[in-house]
């Protein structure tokens, strides 16, 4: 199975290890993985700021880069959500329709397409799961606490396959971290307050590692953790799933 892997711009530049873990994990599971050399950004930063008309060229460019893949996989619920939900403003030709339909967050891809039942991974640490909002409420990777439906979570299901990992329960299971893209800059005080509150919840459960399906949330939390000189580290879900040594 050939997979077109998309590595979001900020992961490409600042967190290459997350890109590498995504690639290695998919390869381990038997996929042939290709990352187009020209890939850049899905266009979300512009669109969330109100400039989706300017982002149109990024949408068509993205489709051009990925139109030949049967499956397009991203280590990001947020970028996946953007392609699926907001690429509706460009002409819906066959390529665009297929790309939107075949774009998956990596957790969905592992569980719904590859249908994996187990993983050969090990991570002997106490972990807190931050439920990134676009994955949770946009892609419905899990049941948000607002909804009266069976409580499910793809991310928890995957973390459950990791040996020796101890997942803690948080009091506010799915509160936003306050990143929100340009919100982090436009409303810095609230953004920071939300992030610190989120960290305090994880601290109360004595976690060593905070994980999430979106590195952007973790970049925000990591920035705060480092500034406050706190010992907790952040790791993207795929870094944990790809982790094998004790």
């Amino acid at each position: 199975m050939t997979v077109g892997l998309f590595i979001p711009c900020y992961i490409d530049q600042f967190y290459p290890q997350v890109g590498i873990a995504s690639l290695e994990l998919l390869e381990k599971l038997g996929c042939e993985v290709v990352v187009p050399a020209g890939q850049t950004c899905c266009g979300q930063p512009m669109a969330n700021t109100g400039c989706e008309q300017d982002a149109r060229k990024n949408y068509t460019y993205f489709v051009e880069q990925y139109k030949d893949f049967d499956h397009i996989v991203m280590p990001s619920g947020s970028c996946t959500y953007h392609v699926r939900k907001h690429y509706d403003i460009i002409e819906q030709n066959e390529d665009v329709r297929r790309v939107r339909q075949n774009t998956y967050d990596i957790s969905e891809f592992l569980l719904d397409v590859l249908k994996i039942k187990s993983l050969d991974s090990q991570f002997p640490h106490t972990v807190g799961l931050h439920q990134s909002c676009h994955g949770l409420r946009g892609l419905r990777l899990g049941t948000g606490t607002e909804r009266v439906l069976p409580q499910e979570s793809k991310l928890k299901q995957l973390l459950g396959m990791v040996k020796d990992l101890q997942l803690v329960a948080l009091e506010r299971a799915d509160e936003c971290c306050g990143f929100g893209g340009t919100f982090a800059i436009n409303e810095p005080d609230i953004s920071v307050r939300m992030g610190l509150d989120r960290i305090a919840e994880h601290e109360a459960q004595k976690v060593e590692v905070i994980t999430a399906g979106d590195m952007s949330c973790l970049m925000h939390l990591e920035g705060l953790l480092k500034r406050q000189k706190k010992p907790i580290v952040v790791k993207h879900l795929v870094e944990i799933l790809n982790h094998t040594e004790p």
Binding site: I7, I11, D12, Q13, F14, Y15, P16, V18, G19, I20, L23, V35, A37, Q39, A184, I185, P188, V192, G195, M219, H220, E222, G223, L224, K226, R227
Partner: peptide
């Protein structure tokens, strides 16, 4: 640098993912 008022910037790696991939 509004981001950096209360938050550290991520560490800038020598190699981007794309550079590593190439």
């Amino acid at each position: 640098n509004t981001w950096g008022r209360d938050r550290d910037l991520p560490e800038a790696p020598k190699e981007s993912f794309q550079e590593w991939y190439q």
